[in-house]
Design a binder for these strands. Structure first.
Lengths: 349, 349
DNA sequence: ATGAAAGCGCTAACAA
DNA sequence: TTGTTAGCGCTTTCAT
């Protein structure tokens, strides 16, 4: 160790590495061994206060930042978790991420996120990057595609999506919103408002299927006929628009709509306006997600709040205990949603 | 090297490391040295086809993935760039990211993103994570806060924000939209439609200041008086709403509005509706960002498109040449915006 | 064209 | 409680 960091570095054309201090520098400055520094870093219990202080000071003075690469290499764990988001355009992930971090940060874990769409557009398997990065675990906030996680050997928690298509992920834990209950909440709210001719605009995603089920169950419970459209479409604004037009062309008697998400609900607004129907006077509309969209005054959309932040936090807790005990039985948690009433719903005229 | 990967690993309670193959395994299987494997990996020029093929096959058969941690440690570069987003809720970053990756991916760089708000909520300096990660460069898609990048020694490119408050980042390259031109585009469009009483709803961000300037310049050019409100507020939907109310309370003669972004524009929609004014019949409204919001049929907002994807691509190109030549003169690129006309603007009634 | 060998900065036994 | 030591998986001269 005599000639570490020699005055003039061999490859001194290195662009931007002004001799970043290492654990050796800290150790030297603090007058201790580098093991001790390592111990202080992850504050091990049996270090004398004097030494600890010396090390801490040295760290401070040198502006030392541990190298993740080195510690990952040495410890075979990165203390990082990869989060694969379905689509950055859908803002529900922001809340999810907040919840995730509220638990993972204090536990010393770093989270890195990737967008499934973006990743796929680059023509690569989105999880490849994460495994190259040696993440300790994966959170999948997206529909688990067949074979996506074939050779993934770290724990996986699926967040937000309850339906696991054809057992694609037999080993994954799942934390999701109780979408069926959410569908029920939305429908019951309209029922309570006196509506009877309530239709549902659905989509082909897993969550959409559960929401639909909640709607259907509730209608049946009230002795009413279900009317569902769009169960085979994507859950976009455009499809919501198209679905509403179809619905009202055939069934002008409808007075209320449950949409599978806020985006579709906004789509219905446009169709309704074009048909000369006003919200909520002629038609009441409920969305799902309680996204920022729903809160805009111009839309003021009554919406089911899945409590995404809580889903994130619970996902993180699940992850941590899975990491703690890889052999524990698979967990499947459901977070209870609630309804946020705004101005898009009113008693039946 | 005799006993690497012994049959039973010492700490064989390791959760999830089923002997991930290393470069040694590949070398052995291909019957070459690990140096050769390394050469093949970043396809060096002088490797015989036979060997190369053998190595490639071994890699394939073993399912080998290089360890980023190890290569980062050995090479002192991660081939990764950190992107600091202002706020994940603002979807403009998605396009930016797409553009960034379209040039960074082929160049072999990995991008990792963080959200400034989220990061700050955790009470840590958002760039700390990046520097611990050893990113080779930083993209700042946010207002550069004072002192944020104090001890950052890697190249920084500021994306999208043109105004650098009090020289906070004297060394950073900048790639931004030409917001002043955008403001002009919006205003000119309304002028062309015959509007004369055109007001502007602004905010206190850097981009907002430029957009405002474009508006003012254009009004002045037309011999008209400017009317600006909200230059000291945040650029949110709520502020757009409040600003529109104030504006029309005092100046009911206004027939057109230029908003500093789409969010504020949506805010004005609500205020206008409350005042019994309809869009575009009574008041024409132009937004900025051409966000997904603007495209919703129910809003159909005419908006200035900053071409965020192109901003991202140009940012990446700037980054790459900066990495290539750290000493090159600072670059400052402006991307030209365009106007997307929808239904929120119409000729003056 | 290919291989040997010396680290990169850190962790984790083990010794002391 | 603290120091010694042997790697982690890869890159990179330098030989050959």
């Amino acid at each position: 160790m005599a000639d570490r960091n020699p005055p003039a570095r061999p490859g001194s054309e290195a662009p931007s590495l002004p001799a970043r201090p290492t654990i050796y520098d800290v150790a030297e400055r603090a007058g201790v061994s580098k093991s001790l520094v390592s111990l202080v870093l992850r504050d091990a219990p049996h270090v004398s206060d004097a030494r600890r202080l010396a090390v801490l000071n040295a760290i401070e003075e040198l502006g030392y930042r541990p190298s993740r690469a080195a510690s990952a290499l040495a410890s075979q764990r990165t203390r990082s978790v990869g989060v694969l988001i379905d689509d950055f355009h859908n803002p529900w992930f922001v809340e999810l991420l907040g919840g995730l971090r509220s638990v993972l940060d204090p536990a010393g874990y770093t989270v890195s996120v990737a967008d499934f769409q973006l990743e796929a557009a680059s023509g690569r398997n989105p999880v490849d990057g994460f495994i190259a990065q040696h993440v300790d675990a994966l959170v999948l906030a997206a529909e688990p595609e067949e074979g996506l996680l074939r050779d993934v050997s770290v724990p996986v928690v699926v967040a937000g999506v309850r339906e696991l298509g054809s057992g694609a992920l037999p080993h994954a834990d799942v934390v999701a919103g109780d979408d069926e209950l959410g569908g029920e909440l939305a429908t019951r709210h309209l029922l309570d408002l006196g509506h009877r001719a309530i239709a549902h605009i659905s989509g082909r995603s897993g969550p959409a299927a559960h929401r639909r089920r909640g709607y259907e169950r509730t209608m049946r419970g009230a002795g009413l006929a279900s009317r569902v459209v769009g169960a085979d479409r994507t859950t976009t604004e455009a499809e919501g628009y198209a679905a509403a037009h179809e619905l009202f062309a055939e069934h002008p008697e409808i007075t209320a709509l449950v949409a599978s998400n806020d985006l579709m609900a906004v789509g219905t607004f446009a169709a309704l306006r074009e048909r000369g129907l006003s919200v909520p006077a002629d038609v009441a509309v409920v969305g799902y997600d309680n996204s920022p969209l729903a809160a805009y005054r111009y839309l003021a959309l009554t919406s089911v709040d899945p409590h995404s932040r809580e889903i994130g936090a619970e996902t993180a807790r699940t992850l941590l205990s899975r990491l703690d005990d890889p052999g524990a039985p698979r967990r499947h948690a459901l977070i209870e949603p609630s309804l946020v009433v705004r101005e898009s719903t009113a008693p039946r005229g």
